[in-house]
Design a protein around this nucleic acid. Structure first.
Lengths: 312, 312
DNA sequence: AATATTTATTGCGTAAAACGCAACACAATG
DNA sequence: CATTGTGTTGCGTTTTACGCAATAAATATT
C-alpha cells in the first residue's frame, strides 16, 4: 500500500473519474488505473465499480474513502504543523474563478502574490459554470451571488458593484444621459445569455426599490468581452461589474455614467465570495493567499479604486 | 512522502535504532537511512538526532511520531475493517516469549495454528530478558509473573504450576521421597541463576503458607535445559514448571513426585500472561491467534494434561 | 441502426526510484 | 589504543512506476 495510491484513490472517489484524478496529478490515466488496481489488491477487495464513463464507490470503498480522506488530511496537517514559524508558503495553489473575473482580477493578484512567495505554484481554472470545489479539488474558489455548499467555508470578499459606461467618443457624438429614463434614447449594448436579455435596474440612494428598464441597442450578445470591445469602439453603452472594466475606467477609455444611481442587472444585491474547503483552511499556502487577498481588497477593492483615482 | 517511509520512521522512533528498524522490515540499514533522510527532506526539517550508537527524536520528530503512529494505526484499522467477515487471517505475526516456554509450548501451538491458517507467517523471538513489546514491535508477548507496561492489554493465560520430578531409573535406585523433608536425602539438581540458588517451596492444600527448603545436589546450573538432561539421565531430582517438562511426564521419561503438595521456586504464586499492544488487539491475525490460544488452554492447558493422561 | 466519442484496461518498453554492498566516519566501550 | 556498533554515502543492480498505444465497452450523437 502506497501513500500515493491513497491520494489517487481520494481524488478518484471525490471526482468519480480516473481521468479527472489523472489530470489533477498530471499523470496518465493508465497510471491511475494501476494505482487503484494495486490498492484494491492490497486491501483485498474492489473499492470502485467501473462504469462506462465514470466510476462509483462500492460500499466498502465508500467507507474506506471516508477514512482515507480524514487520514490524508490529518497527515498533511501533521506535516504542515512541523513547519517552522518563518516557513515560506510553498506548493501548488489551486484556484477556481469565473472566467472574466479570473482573467482581469485574479491573474494580476496571483502574479503579485507569487512574486512575493516564489515557492508558490498555481493552477488557475476559470469557468462560468457552477463547479463543485470539493469534487474539483480546488483550494480556493471565487463565487458570485448565491452559495449552496455547506462544507465550504465562505467569506464575503466584496460587494458586486455595477456601472454604466461609454467611450468618450460615443458621448461626444450622442451626449451624456443624465437619468435612467434617458437611456431609451441611447444605444444600449445588452447581454443576452441563457436567461434571456438582461434588464438594467437602477436604485437611487434613498429609494426603497430598484426600478427596471427594458432597454435596447444595436448589439446584444452572450459574450461580455464582445460587448465590451464594441463599447470601447464607441458603439454604445454597457453595464458591467466594476471588476470587469476597472482598467478601462482608470485609463479613461470608458466613462462611468449615472453614478448617482446604483445599477444592477437583476433585482437585489450580490456579493463576491471566496470559498475554501473546511479542512484546507489551515494549509499555510491557503492561509497566506487568503491573508494577501483580504489585505488587497481592504478597505476598497482595487477594481473600485478608479473613482478615487479620477478624483485625485 | 511515502507510506513506507512513515512506517520506517515509526519503527525507528519506537526503537531508537536504524538497525532495529532495518531488521524489522528485512531491509539494509542504508535503506532505512535513506528513507528517513527522504522523509526529513519532505517535511523540511530533521526528525532525529543522530548519535553514535542510537538516534533520538527531535522535538518536532516527537510530535510527528505521535501523529504518524496514530495515523498508521488508523489506516491499518480502516484497511482491516474492509475485510469480509470470512476473510482468513494473514500477514506476519510477531511473537515474543521466554526461551524455554517458546521452544516447548509456542512452537507446536504456532505450528498447529499455521496449519489451520496457511496465510499466516510468524516471527518468533525468544529471550529471557524483559523486553519492551511496543519498542520491539511484537504483536503478542508471553510473560511470566509480574506486569509493568500499562499500554499493553494483559490477559491471564494460565497458572504456573511447578512439579518435582525424577527419572524412573533414579527412583528405582534411590527410592521415592514421600515428603518434602525426605528431599534432603536425595540428589536435588538446583537452578542457580543471577538471583542465586533457588530454594524449593512446598505448600500442602490446607496450609496457610508454603515452607522453604534449602536443598543440595550434585549439579547446580543457570541452564535449565542442562539440569533437565541430567535428570533424564537419572542424576537427580528437578523442580520445573509443568510447561517445561510436560512431554517427559506424558511419556514417563520423568515421574511426578510429591503431588500432594504445591511446589514453587519462590514465595507466592505466579501466572502466565499474554500481552498485546492496545492498538493491535483488533487486527484479525492477532484476534485469531488469541482465540486459538485461549481455546487451546481451556479448560486445562495442554502442559497440565499429563495428569489426566496418566490416569486414563 | 450506425458511427463517434469517452473512459478505463493492459502489453510493453523506458525512466525513475529503491535497494544492497562495501567503504567509510564517528564515538562509545573494553 | 584497539575494537565494536551504528549511521552515511558512492555506486551498480533490481524493482517499481510511468507513458504510449492498442484495445474493450458502453454511452451519446447523428
Amino acid at each position: 500500500m502506497d501513500l500515493n495510491a491513497l491520494r489517487v484513490f481520494e481524488r478518484v472517489a471525490a471526482t468519480g473519474s480516473f481521468t479527472a484524478a489523472a489530470q489533477h496529478f498530471h499523470r496518465a490515466v493508465s497510471s491511475v488505473s494501476r494505482q487503484i488496481r494495486g490498492l484494491e489488491e492490497s486491501v483485498g477487495q474492489p473499492l470502485l465499480y467501473r462504469h462506462t464513463r465514470a466510476v462509483t464507490l462500492t460500499e466498502a470503498g465508500w467507507r474506506y474513502y471516508e477514512e482515507v480522506r480524514d487520514i490524508l488530511e490529518r497527515l498533511d496537517m501533521a506535516t504542515e504543523a512541523l513547519n517552522q514559524p518563518h516557513a515560506e508558503p510553498s506548493g501548488v495553489l489551486r484556484i477556481n474563478a469565473p472566467v472574466a473575473f479570473g482573467q482581469r482580477q485574479i491573474v494580476p493578484l496571483l502574479h503579485r502574490f507569487q512574486c512575493r512567495f516564489p515557492s508558490i505554484k498555481a493552477e488557475l481554472q476559470l469557468n462560468d459554470r457552477v463547479v463543485d470545489p470539493v469534487r474539483e479539488g480546488h483550494d480556493i474558489t471565487f463565487r458570485v451571488g448565491n452559495l449552496s455548499d455547506s462544507s465550504l467555508v465562505a467569506r464575503q470578499l466584496a460587494p458586486m458593484n455595477y456601472v454604466v459606461a461609454a467611450s468618450p467618443g460615443y458621448l461626444a457624438r450622442h451626449g451624456t444621459p443624465e437619468t435612467p429614463e434617458a437611456l431609451s434614447e441611447h444605444d444600449c449594448l445588452i447581454y443576452q445569455g441563457e436567461l434571456g436579455r438582461q434588464r438594467w435596474y437602477f436604485q437611487r440612494g434613498d429609494a426603497a426599490k430598484e426600478a427596471a428598464y427594458e432597454l435596447d441597442g444595436s448589439l446584444a450578445s452572450n459574450d461580455a468581452e464582445s460587448l465590451l470591445r464594441a463599447a470601447l469602439l464607441g458603439q454604445g453603452l454597457v453595464m458591467f461589474p466594476t471588476w470587469l472594466i476597472a482598467e478601462e475606467l482608470s485609463k479613461g477609455a470608458l466613462v462611468a455614467l449615472l453614478e448617482t444611481w446604483r445599477g444592477e442587472v437583476m433585482p437585489g444585491r450580490r456579493e463576491l465570495y471566496v470559498l475554501t474547503p473546511e479542512r484546507r483552511l489551515r494549509a499555510l499556502k491557503v492561509r497566506a493567499f487568503m491573508d494577501y487577498l483580504f489585505e488587497t481588497v481592504s478597505p476598497t477593492p482595487p477594481w473600485d479604486r478608479w473613482q478615487e483615482e479620477l478624483q485625485s
